[in-house]
Structures are given as C-alpha cells and as structure tokens.
Amino acid sequence: MTKVVIMSDGGDICSQVIGPTGAEHRRLANRVMQEALDRAKLSFPEISYVVATGYGRLNVPFADSEITELTCHAKGVASLFPEVKTAIDIGGQDAKGLKIKSGKLIDFVMNDKCAAGTGRFLEVTAATLGLRLEDLGTISAKSTHRVKISSTCTIFAQQEIVSRLSEGVAVEDVVAGLHDAIAVRVVGMTRRLKIEPVVVLTGGVAKNTGVVKAVREKIEHEVFVPPNPLLSGAIGGAILGRDIVLGALKEGKPIPKKERALEEVTFFN
C-alpha cells in the first residue's frame, strides 16, 4: 500500500490516504499524493517538504529526501505513544522490531528474507483456506482448540494446513494456529532487542485482532495498537520532514529542497 500523510507546521494531520501499490501502481505515488492534496484542499507547491520512506522510497521523484522506514516508524509510533520502548511492525513484506528510547530509534531487527512472519504469510494461507484476509481475526476468536502450526515457512505451512484440515480440525482452530505461528516468529525475533514495555504493534497485520491477541500472549505485557496501524511510518516521515523545515527556519537557513515536480517515476522506462 502507498500511504500519504500531509502535516501542518503546527503538527496537525491535514489529510491521510492509503492507496494501492503493485508492480504498476508503484509508479503512481503521485496519484495517491494528489488525492491527499485534494482532501487537504492544497496544491503541490504549497507543500514545503516531502519525505519518502519504505521499500518504494527510491521511486518517489517528487521527494526532497528519503529516510528508512525504520527511523520513520519509530518516530511515528513515538508520536502516538510517547512512552513506547518496543515497537513491532508487521507489514506485507517484512516484519521489524524497533527499540526506542526517548522517542528515538536506537536499535532494530528485521526479517526481510522470506514471507514467514509477515502479512504475506497470512495472505497466502488465507487463500488456501478460501477465507478473506479481513475475516481471519473474527474467525480465530471462535477457536477452542488452537492447533500448532510447526512450520513458519509459507509453503510448508500451506501443506501442514491441508493435512490438519484433512484430519478434521476446525477452520477457526487452524486460523488461530496461524496467528500463533506469526506471533512466535516475530516476538522471537524482537526478543533479540530485549522487549520492554510500553510495547506497540503496527503495520497492516496489527488490524488482525487474532494476531494482536497472540502477540500479547507471547510478550506477557499489554500491547497497544494505534487507531490506524498502517499509517505510523507515513506519520513519522511527515514529522521528520516538519522537523527538517522548522530546524532550517529556526537557523535562518533555506529549506533543503530539491528541484521537483509531482510526476510519475520514470523507473520502468
């Protein structure tokens, strides 16, 4: 997904949009941006500074700077939960553990090598079960005998699901097992940072109440989820952009902007 957050100099969010990404859509960051501008009733030249973040950060030709999603997520989460010390972000393509001190990122771990422990794992396994991704949380809530899915390899887990179903295990027990498998994987990875409360869970997978519950069980602490868990990275990017602009103004320096126009990336041409 491509997310845009426009922030005022006072730090208020003027508009926020979540649009699609994909092989072709990634070139269309400018369209999502245009939609955010329309909603805020702003024109592009009125935007003082643009920060691009995430996997697509290099494909945003109209950005003034690019900052990694790790730094942006930490900033965004800390703005929503000032006491946060540990953040876990589970997105479609990777999972990250962040260690945050006084609102700043100080260490991180990342799983970006395979689909295990990411949203993609749930997408693929939901398809195997013939379920919609957004229904998984509700379905798993009905589980009474959660099965153990021993494999976190997406392909092997698919095979395991099929064999569990053929043994007559109820679908909700399988779904609860999948949520548990993700939580084991991601919490285990984050333990390398020594998990300390306050713990916040973000990313698209944090919308799944079943995964949130499973993560809570593993961590044995309250786990907070922001109202819109997909947006924390974009919010963090906007805050960092605002800091850059306000910092420059305070020092009487020009804003370090690039020559830019709201256009499509020419990456594929």
Binding site: Y55, T68, T71, L105
Partner: peptide, 16 residues
C-alpha cells in the same frame, strides 16, 4: 540489496 535499508537505518541512528 535488502541490506541497504538496514545499513541506511543504522547510519540514521548514528547521525541522529
């Protein structure tokens, strides 16, 4: 390539 983000984030931590 996947290491790029990690190195970049590490440099951001050092510079912040």
């Amino acid at each position: 390539a996947p290491l790029r983000t990690r190195i970049q984030a590490f440099l951001e931590i050092i510079r912040s």
